[in-house]
Design a protein around this nucleic acid. Sequence first.
DNA 1: TGTGACCCCTAA
DNA 2: TGAGTTAGGGGTCACA
Length: 896
Amino acid sequence: MNGRMGVVSGRYRSLSDRAGEDTAPRTVIELFGRMDDGRSVCLLVHGLRPTFEIAPIGQWKVEDEIAPFLKDRLRSVATMDHVADIRGPEVKWTMLGQRPVWTVEVEQPFHVPALRKALKSQSWQVFSGDIPFVNRLFLDADLGAHVAFSGEVVDERNADGPLLKPSVLDAGGGGRYAVDVTVVTSVDRLEPTPPFQVPYRILSFDLETSIEHETVLCAAACIEDLGSGKRHSIPYTGTEPEILEALTATVLEHDPDIITGYNIDNFDLPRLADRTNILQRGRGSEGSIALFGWGRAPPLETELKRQRDALLPKRQSNRAWNLAGRVIMDTWWQARQALNPRRETLSFVATLLFPDDEAKHKMDVDASKMDEEWAARPEEVLTYCVRDAELPLDILQAIQAVRRKEAVAAVAKVPFETAANGSTSQLIDSLVIRLADQQQVAVPLTGSAEAKEGQITGGYVHDVEKGLHPWIAVLDFKSMYPSIMIGHNICYTTRLEGSLDDVEQPDNVHRSPTEVVFRHQDERKGLVPFLLEDLMAQRDEHKAALRAAKNESDELAVGFHDAMQYAVKILMNSFYGVFASGFYRFTHRDLGSSITAWARQNIKTIIAAVEAEGHGVVYSDTDSIFVRCPIDANAPRMLSDDEREAVEKGDTAALEKRDAHLAAVEEMVAFGTKLAQRYSKDAAVLEFEKGLSVFFSHGAKKRYIGNVVWPAEEMLIRGYETQRTDSFPYLTSTMRQVFRFALADQGDQLVEYARERVRALKQCTVPPSEVVLAKSCKGRVLRTPVKSADDVDFHKDYTNPNSMAQVRVAKQRIELGLGFTSGMKVSFLVTDAKKRPMEVAPWLDTEGDGGEVTYDGLFYAERLAAAVGRITEIFDWNAKDLMAGNRQRTLFSFGT
DNA sequence: TGTGACCCCTAA
DNA sequence: TGAGTTAGGGGTCACA
């Protein structure tokens, strides 16, 4: 058959010799995924052998012969246990110049770590020795997330046959896989294919559990087909084994590619794993498989023993959960990443995303009293369980999590699983290593770079001029760090050390402000600049296609190209971070510091030049400058609501004011565009990004606001408390209003408003829900479920845990039976700040404003006054004045 | 009352 | 033992 699939994940099987046969060791890769026609598939891929590379340490010139002693050493390598073959040499580029490199083939992938270690100790330099075997397939065959294949069908879901079906075993499989179709193929019958939206199937589930007995009371699942958009939900009741087995049967029947739920990583999955361990007693492996055998692997005892990608979901320490052939994607984690919500409970996120849909967030079941609720009204509990199984699908849909990860997988050429749960360096590795292989660049091991000594210097931040500034043009560099890497050919493979002897044209190099020298691209183009240029071109293509799709109102294409261009952008911006990190395989401490040094030089040069032209620069951060425009300061900066209304009615004065405003905006656009154009140079493209009719800062870096009038009208706020998730709602809304007054230059109203708001807090007339604080809390979970504060070790993350409010709150939550997850945001009220440390009480989502908790009004008033006071100070009122309600100034207070 | 250590979170 | 980076503001606590 022929087919196209989206790859979900892969793993390998080592085939041992069958009795009596003298066959060479073989390794088969199982690629799991879903085809464009909607069928799930397992490809059994043959023909790839595990290898790594070695080179001798020591001087060598390309014209040198291979010395006899080296040949001897190679022969001894060939006789080592588990070495199957040695091939080479091939001349490859390494940090120490061109080197002869031999490929060592081993019997099985799991032999590599020990051999690598042994060879290192025998003074061999090892390359490509830490690349997971499945990745090797993607690199060698240049595959991405979408693969076209041909092969022979060896099993189908509806076909007959025993678990150990001969056709599957003969094809190198382990038994019948839990997929629609199983296909045997080989490396040379796979090829990359253009990205398409895979009709993935998602299963979301939720458990209700007894707090007292830690048992599962009931469960629910909801299955969604992304191809048709169809969904259906299933409730589960009965005895605990019945529930677990029915849930497992649903997974196998509906065969999802992605499994989700809300906080399943830290709650539902650990619970299912624990309960499975207890319930299977006396039933052995068969019991485990029936209760929790969710993977696509054959339901065999041997499949339980795998460390990862097993038949049962597993996780190593605190990493993501994994299982054979499917991806576990926690909606809690996805929502947190995409939305950075102030609180992280399911009901809070649902309210945030679906404010008008009451049914999605009302809470009629008290989860903290689940045993009583279950006893008293099981039907309501089950109804909410079903809803909470469906909600994660709504949330994933709203934040486009699956489509975005799919786009990242396509751009980075990795399986969906790597895009969903992998690290940034894995994405970069996928692109860089395949190019290195093409260009005969040896691939160093992770951790082989010299450690970075201390931090590198980062971006330049210009002092802010405090106060109100009319008519400010914001210019910024387009993809600054990627442009610098391209423009100066910055790469691991182009950095020159010491003498420039082997450089053809010693004058024709890039020399950074920190005196690091990079080879010119005409002589040797770096891997990173090459990849970044390609990504930039891809982004332009998708942006063009996006515009075209928008014109044709092709919504499907709009979604696709938008996700793709966004994924390219994310990936491009990840390069700098990875290459500036201390541990990445292709890094050197001079790379990151050269990039930022060039960036600082660029921006500082421009600031100086613009100022020399007579245009003040009020602020600048890393890649942006805020420039005063030569526009009449009296030009109207904005129109009030009344004035807008008057414009609608054709009022002459209002129309005149509007026209004067628009004329000034146009002047600013012309000025900004021209300035950006004049200061763009080669790869360093400066763009006029925004026009502000007013800019305001109280004088702190990274904290400013502006009234944006171009390209669209909006209020811009950066850094201030309104942006922070560890602030409280009353402070946030107060500041937002204060900013409106500030931008309108209405100092008197601003101060009056601020005083009133501080007074309300002091008198505790503000509802408690408006003063809820939230902070994330770390800690190592020692035992699950977390039932007492002793089950979490806070000392690993905190020097003095109890001095941190969020830790004290987390401990109280644990005692209330609410569980704990490392990194979760905990919400709380300050009840008495005079105590040291301050007294805090957890804020539970089920609480309304009628609760008994009372907050410390004075504390909140002081915090509000402090935050707002920084703004009002510009208008001559400080925090103390705000607290007092009047200004404590006399004639004699000056200068004392 | 001032200061430094520690921490969270944001801008870029 | 896992892994994108640095710059920066500001809150809390402990202690002089």
